[in-house]
């Protein structure tokens, strides 16, 4: 996979990203390398899937890109300029780069209405709009994420909505500032299997119509294959394999990718796992 140069129209480039945590227990100090030397480039209109197990550092990458955490080393470059950490510059950066959180049950404030969640980013990033225009935009956004009619949802509170509906609100909130890049941190892992596809299709459709650059973080290789243009496999803070989805899935090079593939449900191996477990139970 060749890297696009940052002199193109717009890119979000992650360069040699590093994040270490110091663990203290008594006088002992250990350094945990949560992310070490991760590089990739996100472009508008492309989806990159970041696949890995729990604790492999996927979410840390997401939090660093959305400036919730600072990197210990390396850089995040938006159109070639380093991502700011404070002030107006950070506000501008955030109007371009937004995030969808993993758990829609936790990422919406139970105290506020749905409208509040979509209106606030509009108000922050489009200060010149009047209240009426902001409300209109918020309704438009809700309808865009297929919460129709918007008036039915606008004045409700998060606990009155289903998981899928909440995640749509979270997506609308991420779109509100007019973002070009969306970091979606396991956006469907907390949802019922039956509604995952709906949310993913929505994301894919928005990505196409708006030309968004999406970083799709997941541990599900199947959806990664269907919804992305490139797959990166992350293991213990490093990217161990990357490439076209089909080539990664059909011809895995790294040991961990193979393990991940085998863990996925496969109709051809129906009952095989059960047989293995039973056999083990007999021998012990």
């Amino acid at each position: 996979m060749s890297h696009a140069k940052p002199n193109g129209p717009s890119t979000l480039e992650i360069k040699n990203l590093k994040r270490d945590y110091t663990l203290r227990s008594g006088f002992k100090r250990n350094v945990l390398h949560a992310v070490s030397d991760v590089s990739f480039t996100l472009e508008p209109g492309r989806t990159i899937a970041l696949v890995g197990e729990s604790g492999s550092g996927k979410s840390t990458v997401a939090r660093i890109i959305s400036r919730l955490e600072n990197a210990t080393g390396g850089q995040v470059l938006l159109d070639g300029a380093p991502a700011p950490t404070r002030g107006r510059a950070l506000e501008r950066y955030r109007s371009k780069v937004q995030m969808v959180f993993q758990d829609p049950f936790a990422s919406l404030n139970p105290f506020h209405t749905i409208l509040h969640h979509v209106e606030r980013p509009l108000r922050i990033h489009h200060p010149h709009l009047s209240s009426k225009q902001i409300k209109e935009r918020a309704y438009e956004l809700l309808e865009r994420v297929q919460l129709t009619p918007a008036s039915r949802y606008a004045d409700r509170r998060p606990h009155e909505l289903s998981g899928g509906q909440r995640q749509r609100v979270a997506i609308a909130r991420a779109l509100a500032p007019g973002a070009t890049y969306i970091v979606a941190d396991e956006p469907v892992s907390m949802l019922d299997v039956s509604i995952r596809l709906g949310v993913l299709n929505l994301l894919a459709e928005l990505q196409r119509s708006e030309g968004l650059g999406v970083l799709y973080i997941t541990h599900d290789l199947a959806t990664a294959r269907h919804f992305s243009d490139e797959i990166m496999v992350m293991y213990r803070g490093k990217i161990v394999e990357r490439g076209e989805p089909d080539s990664v899935i059909l011809n895995p090079q790294h040991e961990y990718t193979r393990t991940l593939l085998e863990a996925a449900a496969d109709p051809d191996r129906l009952g095989q796992l059960r047989a293995e477990v039973r056999a083990e139970g007999i021998t012990t």
């Binding site: 109007s95 995030m99 990422s107 404030n109 606030r120």
Partner: peptide, 13 residues
């Protein structure tokens, strides 16, 4: 540490 606080920070609050 709640996600909704992080989310409002990402939104630019």
């Amino acid at each position: 540490m709640r996600d909704y606080v992080a989310a409002s920070r990402v939104a630019g609050e």
